[in-house]
């Protein structure tokens, strides 16, 4: 089975963001594998192990592989290497200089996956921390005609029935339980597993794994009629001027209650 994982190269959440121009950030910051995608890669790798154990019992050939796919600049190779250090077998980079919106991204991902093979299942993270569009997995599913579940926190394959059961996280720790037939698209949420940091030998091994680069033009997708485009980007510091509430404990509490009552008007 071919297990695809779509991953994104995003600015480190701790990084300070600066602007290059009125529409783009200065990408001279640390970029890395989107945190939610770590759960996706980890689950894909453990699913591969599970399938291998199953097939070795049946005596069939092992052709299961985990392929990570990313869309971005050349530098996104680093994120593919990180995913390969976590156990993915090879990578595909769709090279584009532009920030693509979700509609185009989903079309390009589908085209690249189709060019490579027949997906048995596709994992993604539940959202990217830079654009937080929360929709690419649904578009990818719709483009393929596959069912989709997002924010998956539990994954149980049922290979004899060619389906999977998943639990998704809802409001206030609630859970929805779904059955999906394979192939499907699953967006991994926090809690699905505990991603392990790759060891040094894993990192070395990942350097030798193959990355196939394809250009956006090569994939020749239909240009969508609809789009979302960033027309302006401004820094949002949200800088505040702190004022200390002073005095002994009872004075502090009196002042605090007064602020809550008269200024914030919440009591």
């Amino acid at each position: 089975m071919k297990i695809y994982v779509c991953v994104k190269h995003v600015p480190d959440s701790a990084a300070n963001i600066a602007l290059k121009d009125s529409k783009h950030i200065d990408d001279n910051v640390t970029l890395l594998l989107n945190p939610y995608d770590e759960y996706a890669v980890t689950e894909a790798v453990s699913f591969k192990k599970y399938l291998n154990e199953k097939t070795s019992l049946c005596g069939t050939d092992d052709d299961t592989e985990v392929i990570v796919v990313s869309l971005g600049k050349k530098d996104a190779e680093k994120t593919l290497r990180s995913a390969m250090a976590m156990g993915a077998d090879r990578g595909i980079l769709i090279e584009t200089e532009k920030i693509e919106d979700s509609i185009t991204t989903a079309r390009l991902l589908k085209a690249a996956i189709e060019k490579d093979g027949v997906p048995g299942i596709i994992f993604t993270g539940r959202e990217s921390i830079d654009m937080a569009g929360m929709q690419t997995m649904f578009r990818l599913g719709a483009n393929f005609g596959f069912p989709v579940a997002n924010n998956v926190v539990k994954f149980t394959p049922d290979i004899t029935n060619n389906s999977v059961e998943v639990e998704t996280l809802t409001e206030a720790s609630g859970r929805d339980l779904y059955q999906l037939s394979l192939p499907c698209v699953l967006g991994a949420g926090r809690g699905l597993n505990s991603p392990a940091y790759p060891t040094f030998p894993d990192v070395v091994k990942a350097k030798k794994k193959q990355i196939l680069s394809v250009s956006k033009n090569e994939l020749n997708i239909d240009k969508p009629q609809a789009s979302t485009e960033i027309i302006e980007l401004k820094l949002f510091a949200g800088k505040r001027t702190p004022e200390e509430i002073k005095g002994d404990l009872s004075q502090k509490i009196t002042s605090l209650v007064k602020i809550l009552k008269e200024e914030a008007k919440i009591i």
């Binding site: 809802t170 720790s173 929805d176 339980l177």
Partner: peptide
């Protein structure tokens, strides 16, 4: 629709309201 019948909601377990929202 292409994905019809391929996804079924089996159960919806509500969360705990006291710590949510």
């Amino acid at each position: 629709e292409p994905d019809c019948g391929k996804i079924t909601l089996l159960e919806s377990r509500p969360g705990d309201n006291s710590d949510g929202d």
